[in-house]
Every structure is written in C-alpha cells, then in structure tokens.
C-alpha cells in the first residue's frame, strides 16, 4: 500500500488515477500517524519550495516522514517538487528541505545562444546512468513529461539515477537506498510513467 502524502501541494488526483488504473493500492493522507506508519510513501509537489516546506511543517509531517524513511527505512518516491524536497535546500527559497539526499536545488540555466526556455516544459528522453529499481534497464530510452524551473544537483554522482538533456545533462532522478525521486511527472507520461510507478509499487 502506497500512502500519498497530501499536504495541499501537488496534483494528487492524477497520481491516484494512475495507481487505480495500474491496480496498485494507494491511499491519501495528511495525518502524521498514517505517514509515519506507512508501508511506502509518495511525496508529490508542485509550486514553490518554501510554500511546500511550510505546508509540511504546518501539518507536522516532517517528523513523521523522518520516522518512516530514516528509522523504518520505508521506500519513498518524491515527484517533481517532491524530489527537490528530498534535498538540503533550494535557491528558490530559504527554508531547509528534508536533507536526505546530499544535494542542492538550483535554478535551470539556459546556455547562451540556446532557444531553451524556463520553465522547462515538455517531453524529453530520459537516460538512466545505472541500473536502479526505477530504471532496471540502463539502455532504455523512455520519454517523460517535465515541468520545472529548478533542478537537483547531487554532491555524489552515485545518487543520480537518470539524466536529461537541458543544454547539458542534468540529473532528473535520484536513487539512494530506500529514497527515490523523479523530476518529471510519471503520472502524466503514458506507458512510460505507468512502467515506473508500477516498478515503485512492486518494491
């Protein structure tokens, strides 16, 4: 059973729709006791970094998340801003993130002379750089839907699971022990997203 953390920030309806379609059991909760005792967690998120951290704090969810993920070692998948929240902090805000991944979140930079725009909106090919539970096949080329203005920069290359091209290669998925994150929206990425969310559901 996957518990989707409902802290008021994120496109939860679309995630529920895809899990229902896949036949993966999921529940939605904003209660710290449900989150702390969850079997598996999904941390969604769209919008601004500090708004999300404040929302987690307001609902007293951070101790519950720490308990489930760091003490009980339950798998968690952060999606979009949810992946950024796994990091130490973001250029977008002043508040600290969950700090589970040794990484900073920085604004996307458009290389000079490039026609790229920020936010980065659209489909892009994702390249896994090593075999992980979310990307079991390293040579697979799957396309996913992205909407973001900030990106995760990991201290350790080993925490990076997959990259995407944005003028240069940037990290778009992390995997460190029981902690997973994707910058793109699997719930909006046709069969590619289904494959990935099913893989998380099967952990």
């Amino acid at each position: 059973m996957i518990t989707i953390v409902d802290y008021g920030v994120g496109n939860i309806g679309a995630l529920e729709n895809m899990f229902d379609f896949l036949g993966v059991d999921c529940t939605v909760s904003n209660r710290p006791e449900d989150v702390g005792n969850a079997d598996k967690l999904l941390l969604p998120g769209v919008g601004a970094f500090d708004t999300a951290v404040n929302a987690l704090n307001r609902q007293n969810l951070i101790p519950a998340l720490n308990y489930a993920v760091c003490r009980r070692k339950r798998p968690i998948l952060g999606v979009c801003l949810g992946m950024q929240l796994l990091c130490r902090g973001s250029q977008e805000g002043d508040l600290p993130g969950l700090g589970w991944i040794d990484a900073d979140v920085r604004r996307l930079e458009v290389p000079s002379g490039s026609k790229l725009k920020v936010p980065h909106i659209g489909w892009a090919d994702v390249r896994p750089i090593r075999e992980t539970n979310l990307f079991p096949k390293i040579h697979s080329m799957e396309r996913f839907y992205f909407v973001h203005s900030y990106h995760v920069c990991c201290d350790r290359p080993n925490d990076v699971a997959a990259v995407v091209d944005f003028g240069r290669e940037i990290c778009c998925s992390v995997s460190a022990g029981n902690i997973y994150g994707v910058q793109f929206h699997p719930e909006k990425s046709h069969r590619f997203g289904m494959r990935l969310l099913k893989a998380f559901g099967d952990l």
């Binding site: 496109n11 939860i12 309806g13 679309a14 529920e16 729709n17 895809m18 379609f21 769209v46 839907y145 909407v147 929206h185 719930e187 909006k188 990425s189 046709h190 069969r191 997203g193 289904m194």
Partner: peptide, 25 residues
Amino acid sequence: FMPLAYGGGITSLEQCEQISRAGIE
C-alpha cells in the same frame, strides 16, 4: 495519462483547485 489542460467558464480559484483535484494540472 498525459498532460491535460482545461479551459472554459473558470472564474474562481476554488474551481481551479477542484479541476486540479480531478487530475487536470
């Protein structure tokens, strides 16, 4: 299971939130 956009007759923030809840981002 793709990005979906809806428009038409939207006049309040509450409607936007309901549309997002439905799974349309």
